[in-house]
């Protein structure tokens, strides 16, 4: 069980290879909320970085 805390370690990657993808997915969803919260800070010129 403790392995799941360190899913990037090589031994964990060999034994439970799906641990890292699951961690990433969970983090991605959580961080998407951060994006949603911060979307008010989106500058008007968003996307006009390089023309």
């Amino acid at each position: 069980m403790r392995d799941y805390i360190w899913p990037w370690q090589s031994n964990v990657m060999m034994k439970h290879p799906w641990a890292l993808p699951i961690l990433f997915l969970i983090l991605a969803v959580i961080l998407s909320f951060v994006t949603w919260f911060r979307s008010k800070h989106a500058p008007q010129g968003q996307g006009q970085e390089q023309q």
């Binding site: 990433f24 997915l25 996307g47 970085e49």
Partner: peptide, 24 residues
């Protein structure tokens, strides 16, 4: 044009699907 690669995902796939993919 104008968007970094990361921003293309929410732009094309919609915020709901695109943002988690971008965060990956």
């Amino acid at each position: 044009p104008g968007l970094t690669y990361i921003e293309c995902y929410p732009a094309q796939f919609g915020k709901l699907l695109g943002t988690p993919i971008a965060w990956l």
